[in-house]
Design a protein around this nucleic acid. Structure first.
Ligand code: SF4
Ligand code: SF4
Lengths: 165, 165
DNA sequence: CCATAATCGGACAATAAATATCCGAAATAG
DNA sequence: CTATTTCGGATATTTATTGTCCGATTATGG
């Protein structure tokens, strides 16, 4: 039970992109430089976001990434599943079918109490993350940062942002 | 985000132990044989449960494992943390302190919106698992199994169970 | 239109974690 | 006391994560 750190990076990148006006974006190298993380690995996470349809891309000289839909419609769950895949965390090996008292497959049509309990916990986890969109995150970050820092970020974005059609 | 399969095995073993009367237990080899899983690896999980204080052990000729407290006071969360450790799934690298717009450590005293959201989701997950004890699991399994299967299990337990002081 | 430069995309190693196994330490029975 | 049986921690093997590289694709500018 360990969430890959690529999820954190992708979340940060998405929040940063959400601060840009519609139609503008950043290239992968700039996103990596902003947080001083390894460039190629940051790019890999962005590719995952792209395949999941969370960001749109443009290749070539003026390429880069921008959000594919409004920030309010992108939740942390979307980002996490884009990076980690959406298979459930608790994988059932059906060991109750093994051994001297193994149950028959017919008896295992519905999943047992253990699997059901973990599934319920995962649902709670998912719904909690689905309730938070990039808009809430960005608002929280802005509220916690001093005015001066926000100006710095704004200036940096203005310098690095590119138009993406 | 993947729950180790040792958790499933440990949960099954604990449920099986909860079916025994107080003061009786099973040895690791029997627990492994019951589900046809690799013996040494099953033993490793039982050691983790032992260190966490969930089961009591006895070594020597009539050794084995038995629950250390009533089944109603052992939750799935207890078992999962015993196997996987209790560190939080989302590990924060504090990358907001890096890069051209890095925040100072003073600005990072309280954790940011991203980390807070993941923490809240983990709390929801934990509370869901903490609400389920071995008693509920055992009742669910019993309700789903035909009478004949339960008799088989009972006979097997009677044959394998040992007294543990 | 074509060569060029810059960017994303997927294939490729290095590292860390989970999985499976072994042998020694401890305790009971006789 | 000694033999036997069991748990306990240290040890290999396999799998997933982390990090890196080079080729495919697109706009630019002559
Ligand atoms: S469904 Fe339940 S009983 Fe069957 S293998 Fe999974 S956890 Fe065990
Ligand atoms: S606390 Fe928040 S801002 Fe800081 S590194 Fe973690 S996720 Fe990023």
């Amino acid at each position: 039970m360990q969430i890959s750190k690529g999820v954190e990076w992708a979340a940060h990148a998405a929040v940063l992109l959400s601060a840009l006006p519609t139609g503008r974006g950043l290239k992968a190298e700039a996103l990596a430089r902003y947080h001083s993380v390894p460039g190629p690995y940051m790019a890999k996470q962005m590719q995952a976001l792209s395949k999941a349809g969370i960001v749109q891309t443009a290749r070539g000289k003026h390429g880069g990434y921008r959000l594919a839909r409004p920030a309010g419609e992108i939740t942390l769950w979307d980002i996490m599943t884009a990076i980690e895949g959406s298979k459930s965390a608790f994988t059932c090996t059906e060991i109750r079918q093994n051994g001297p008292c193994g149950a028959t497959p017919e008896q295992c049509r519905k999943k047992c109490a253990i699997a059901a309990a973990f599934h319920a916990a995962e649902v709670a986890f998912r719904e909690s993350l689905q309730a938070i969109s990039l808009v809430e995150i960005a608002a929280g970050v802005a509220a916690d940062s001093p005015r001066k820092h926000l100006r710095n970020v704004g200036a940096w974005l203005e310098k690095e942002a590119v138009a993406i059609g």
